[in-house]
Design a binder for these strands. Structure first.
Lengths: 226, 226
DNA sequence: GTCCGGCGTATGGATCGCGTAAAGACGGCC
DNA sequence: GGCCGTCTTTACGCGATCCATACGCCGGAC
């Protein structure tokens, strides 16, 4: 998880870098609004912690500029405690607003809160569950960072399920979409391919948590409950 | 845009209702944690404004219960200013945390911020009653956020009833739609499956409130009595 | 009070569907 | 032609589901 911290105070920058790094984040930094926008575009962070009191560009202008091309969560940190400042920042596109001084634990919790809601706001239409990441566009599956080799049929089944998260996909739908309209009755294919998919993707293939069977009807893909 | 406001202080409740209504929101209210959970399930609001200091259920427990089945944004309002309270609430699934007293303009801005990101959850039209949510499109039933496992026959019966809320469904209709046109006289099947459905979905299976028997005629599904 | 029809519940056996393994068939590639 | 990966087909064990039956309860009719 990458964090961009933008603040003009080198001490705060340093302190935040240490704290965030200690909590497992990759930290990049910016010292003014111009740098912040460049870094946001270049580093593609998962969340931006933005100080409004930076010289040069106005803080709200930075937010609006960044919001022009990305939905990356923005958490504003500011010395201003007045309501209008908060309202302006939030309405410009910030996701949260914390006033200085703040407890680091609270900042971390708020970072978790805003990133929790935008897991797929990263780049690419990926679906993640457990330690698995499915990139539908790239036709690629990774597990714990490692490439997972899927056969064409396995991919076709998985894709159909992943494209309908939480929804039940009937056996007939799967069969016709993968094997063609002639196949309408389960010849046992599905059981086999769901088996191999579970073996490759589930932590415990004998107790699947994401590729669920609905007996007599079909199958269901369930992403992480969080 | 619907807002659920949960607070045990009637004055705050009233004030928020007036303010939010004036800004174009449809407001529903709850006075304790239990009510809040029920209202969240029944009214399906677009955002929940939740006071943590309510009697009865712990605020964090309310958040976790609601998070069990929906991603509706939750904005916590609390008198507690300590860090641990904020961290607990945010990590439980809250999207924002505002301490009393707060400026109404700020609250409104924060509501806009959390709702801006919500993509109006893609789960289809649902029918809710009690702590049960039936998603006809996804063919899924949840109770208090937990998945309820229904057999194909159980689902077929439930679906037929839920699709005709408040209307009486005759035994013959149920039999022919579930078991085929040959079955026209009650062989005792319906009694059995209504029994299991009540066991799985009713708060008190011996005193059903939603799956009602009409003696000699059929059955009737009744959503929550207002 | 007694009878009776309709309903709810429990129980046991037959059946169905699923998961798994293994082996043969097919096609691409060297 | 031989090798390899993938797909198809078949078979078996096991658990869940469904079916069939029986019994107890309740309210209404008489």
């Amino acid at each position: 998880m990458r964090v961009l911290v933008a603040d003009d105070d080198p001490q705060i920058l340093k302190a935040l870098r240490i704290i965030l790094t200690a909590h497992g984040y990759d930290v990049s930094t910016a010292r003014d609004g111009r740098e912040a926008i460049d870094a946001a575009a270049h580093d593609r962070p998962d969340v931006i912690v933005l100080d409004l009191g930076m010289p040069g560009l106005d803080g709200v202008a930075v937010i609006e500029a960044v919001r022009g091309w990305t939905t990356t969560p923005i958490l504003v940190v500011s010395g201003r405690t007045d309501t209008s400042g908060k309202v302006d920042a939030l309405d410009a596109g910030a996701d949260d607003y914390v006033t200085k001084p703040f407890a680091t634990e609270e900042l971390l919790a708020r970072i978790r809160a805003v990133t929790r809601r935008a897991p797929e706001a990263a780049d690419g239409p990926t679906v993640a569950f457990g330690d698995v990441v499915v990139d539908l566009a790239a036709r690629q599956v990774k597990r714990a960072g490692q490439d997972v080799r899927l056969t064409p049929t396995e991919w076709a089944v998985l894709e159909q399920l992943v494209r309908n998260p939480r929804r039940l996909v009937t056996q007939q739908t799967l069969l016709t979409s993968v094997w063609g309209p002639t196949h309408t009755r389960d010849s046992g294919y599905l059981r086999i391919y769901l088996g191999t998919l579970r073996k490759k993707l589930e932590a415990d293939p004998s107790r699947p948590r994401h590729l669920i069977t609905e007996p007599g009807i079909g199958y269901r893909f369930v992403p992480d409950p969080e």
